[in-house]
Design a protein around this nucleic acid. Structure first.
Lengths: 195, 195
DNA sequence: AATCAACTAACTAACGTTTGTTAGTCTCAT
DNA sequence: ATGAGACTAACAAACGTTAGTTAGTTGATT
C-alpha cells in the first residue's frame, strides 16, 4: 500500500519538478513517512524512477489503445480531429503526460536510453491506432493519396509542436494555435476534389 | 576577459545539462579557475544565468534579423522553406539554440517569468520577418487567402514540433519528419489553382 | 493457548559528498 | 600603493545512502 503511494507521489513530483529536482525528502514528505523508510520499498532513487516510468508507459498505452478503439464511425476529419484533441488534452493536462514530457525532453543524464525505449513504445501504440484511419481515408477518397508514413509523421509533428507550446502560451493563444495548425493540416491532407 | 569566458562556458554547460545540473564547480573548471573566483565577476549563480540569457537573446535576435533580411527574391515556397531550414538548423545545432530549448521547456523554477519574456521577445523578431513573406505570397496569389496570424501560428507549431522531435530521433527519421511536415504544410497553404 | 522466530515497515542518527557562498590572503599590474 | 583578480580555507545546507533499532504482525512449534 505504502509502495503504491510512493509511486503516485513520486510520479507527481517528477512530473512537476523533474527527476533531479525531486529529492527523496520531498517524496517521503508527500507520502507522510521519513526519508529512510523509502528504502524499505525501493533499493534506491533510480529504482523509484524506473517503476514510475514503467507505470506511466502502461497507463499511456492503455489509454491510447482504448481511445483508439473508441473512435466511432464519424467522418475521417472528425476521427482525426478527435484524436488530435484527446491526445493533446491527455498530454497537457494529465500528470502522466507531464511526466512524459519532462523525462523525454530532458532525460535524467544516464538513463536516457531506457527513456527513449519507453517513448518509442508508446508512440508505436499510437501509430497503430492512427494508420487504419489514414488508410481508410485514402481508400474512400477523402484524403490525398499521400504515403501513410508521411501522414503520421506530419500528424505527430503537429501534436509535438502544440505539446511544446503548451509551455509558454496561455489557453487563448494555445487554442488559436491548435485551430490554425489543424485547419492548415486538414487543407494539406484532404482530397482537393472533396470540398 | 575572464568574465566573457565564464559566460561562454556557462552557456555551454547550461545548454547541455540545464541550469540545476550545472554547478559553479563545473563552470569554474571549464574556465580554468577556482570556484570562488567566479564571485569576483558575478554576485551569484543566478546573475550568471541572467547574463547568459541576455546574451543569447541578443544573439538570436541578431541572427534572425540578419537571416530575414537576407531572404532573396526566390519563389515564396523557397523563401519559406529556407526560413524553415535555417531556423531549425540554428535551433538544433547551435549552443544558443540548445540553451534556449532547455530553459524555455523547463525553466529553472523561480525565474520562469523572465524566461518567458525572453522567449516572446525572440519570437517577435521572427514574426516580423515572417509576416511580409506571407503577405506577399497572398497578394501574388501564390498562397490561399488565409489570415496571416493563422499562417504564422501554424508555421511556428511546425517548427516547434520538429524542434522537440530533434530530442528523440536520429537524423534520418528527423529529416523524414521535416520533409513530411513541410510537404503537407505547403499543400495546406499554397493556392490550389497554382500547381 | 502460549511462546518464539521471522518478517515488514516504520524510525533516529549519522555517513560522506556536493551544493552555493563568504572571508581573508596573496600577487601582479597600473 | 591601490585595486583587480586570482587563490585557500571554511561555511551551512541539502543530497542520497547506510546502519542499527523498534514496534506490530504472521506462522509454526510446543
Amino acid at each position: 500500500m505504502t509502495k503504491q503511494q510512493v509511486l503516485e507521489e513520486a510520479l507527481n513530483l517528477f512530473a512537476h519538478h523533474g527527476y533531479e529536482n525531486t529529492s527523496l525528502a520531498h517524496i517521503a514528505k508527500a507520502v507522510g513517512i521519513k526519508k529512510p523508510s523509502l528504502y524499505n520499498h525501493f533499493s534506491n532513487k533510480e529504482a523509484i524512477f524506473f517503476e514510475v516510468l514503467d507505470e506511466v508507459v502502461k497507463r499511456q498505452i492503455q489509454f491510447f489503445e482504448q481511445k483508439g478503439s473508441e473512435l466511432n464511425q464519424d467522418s475521417i476529419e472528425d476521427q482525426l480531429h478527435d484524436f488530435y484533441d484527446i491526445y493533446l488534452d491527455y498530454m497537457t493536462t494529465s500528470t502522466e503526460g507531464m511526466f512524459f514530457k519532462r523525462v523525454t525532453f530532458f532525460p535524467p543524464e544516464n538513463f536516457s536510453d531506457e527513456i527513449k525505449k519507453a517513448f518509442l513504445r508508446v508512440e508505436d501504440t499510437l501509430t497503430n491506432s492512427l494508420i487504419p484511419v489514414f488508410e481508410k481515408g485514402i481508400e474512400e477518397g477523402k484524403l490525398r493519396k499521400l504515403p501513410v508514413p508521411m501522414l503520421t509523421s506530419a500528424f505527430y509533428t503537429l501534436i509535438d509542436g502544440l505539446f511544446l507550446e503548451e509551455n509558454f502560451y496561455d489557453t487563448d493563444i494555445l487554442n488559436e494555435r491548435k485551430k490554425a495548425s489543424w485547419e492548415i493540416f486538414w487543407l494539406g491532407i484532404r482530397h482537393p476534389e472533396e470540398a
